[in-house]
Nucleic acid binder design. Structure first.
Lengths: 191, 191
DNA sequence: TTGACAATCTAGCAATGCTATATTATTATA
DNA sequence: TATAATAATATAGCATTGCTAGATTGTCAA
């Protein structure tokens, strides 16, 4: 019987509409504007329906974050494959990282700044996060022996650049120079 | 007449008690537990009194952050002056940075993660933030020509390490190696 | 002593996350 | 096909939050 399939398909679709609405509202008006009532209105269902999809509001934010990690992985891979010369790859990925973070501030916030229980270096890491990490690891591999350490550090540096620029604590005008410095550091001292 | 003085002294003291209570509660139970009602209870005044000291809750968080920047500056300076050898200075400051961030997670959160309107690279930067930046700048100066860029990047790298470790996205066990990598990068490629 | 003003409190609003319970739609059974 | 069971959804409400209008108390000068 296709009825059950149709139902679960419709359910999945409704769930996606919740996540999509959350993302759009967050990007337009900030995460504070993403309330359960607002989302319920948006998908044209009553509030308790949302709780049949997600345990609580944080789980909705986490779902947006996971979507962000999927897109992020694609962005990194494309930036990497679209450049030639190992060093250029590094630079372009770094630039793409910052562009991604600053072009979708709410998405990036869900991924890296808002409190989540999405862990990385643990058992039970979600596959989307693992894939994102791997995409970055692939980029730095040619430049280092201890891939894990260098990837973590490269990621941290990029996140730091994004976070500080985001909060206006670093001059936007000098972004290129900071990126150049990070790239040179990986090239020269990844060992 | 010393009456006015006494009054403004008592007022300042009460204000400080608010900030101190906010910090203690945040560190013990997280920032969500820092409510106006809770703070009012703590200082044994009614809620509206808090609004005669601070415009809103965010301003209280910001006050804690500013206190954090003051302590942070001291920590950086001490780590720097307590080490010999320019390269050792860098390493010890980096370690002190991470120790500070992870030892006072709520304080660090107020300083760097929670939304604030404390800006850096702008006119009207609070002196406490400027001093913190200068303390870090002093540490990297021997290793670079463009002090501003290197300081920003060093700071970003350290913040990234702290933030990712905080949220469990990087292996705590490899902290030392990541720090070593950042330090080497500054030494080698600050130019 | 009284009247103005400052300091403080009581009480309440609107919004939030979340849930117990009522209601409606859907399916399976007699 | 009529009805009972169950699933899907809605209504209504609770407790908590940040914040504030308005009442009340205290303090000081005339």
């Amino acid at each position: 019987m296709g009825i059950a399939e149709r139902k679960s398909r419709e359910r999945a679709e409704r769930e996606y509409r919740i996540v999509a609405a959350a993302r759009v509202i967050a990007e337009r008006e900030g995460w504070d504007a993403v309330t359960i009532r607002r989302l319920a209105e948006e998908i044209e269902y009553s509030q308790p329906v949302l709780y049949s999809h997600f345990e609580n509001r944080d789980a909705i934010v986490a779902a947006v974050a996971v979507e962000g990690f999927r897109e992020f992985t694609v962005v990194v891979r494309e930036a990497a494959s679209g450049s030639s010369g190992r060093r250029n790859v590094l630079k372009n990925v770094a630039m793409a990282y910052l562009a991604f973070a600053l072009r979708h501030p709410a998405l990036y916030e869900a991924m890296f700044i808002l409190p989540t229980d999405l862990r990385f270096a643990e058992a039970g890491t979600r596959p989307e996060l693992h894939a994102a990490f791997q995409a970055l690891a692939a980029v730095v591999t040619p430049f280092c022996v201890d891939v894990a350490v260098v990837t973590e550090t490269f990621w941290a540096a990029l996140h730091g650049l994004a976070a500080l620029e985001r909060s206006g604590r670093v001059r936007p005008s000098a972004r290129g120079e900071r990126i150049a410095l990070v790239v040179r550091a990986i090239v020269v001292s990844g060992k």
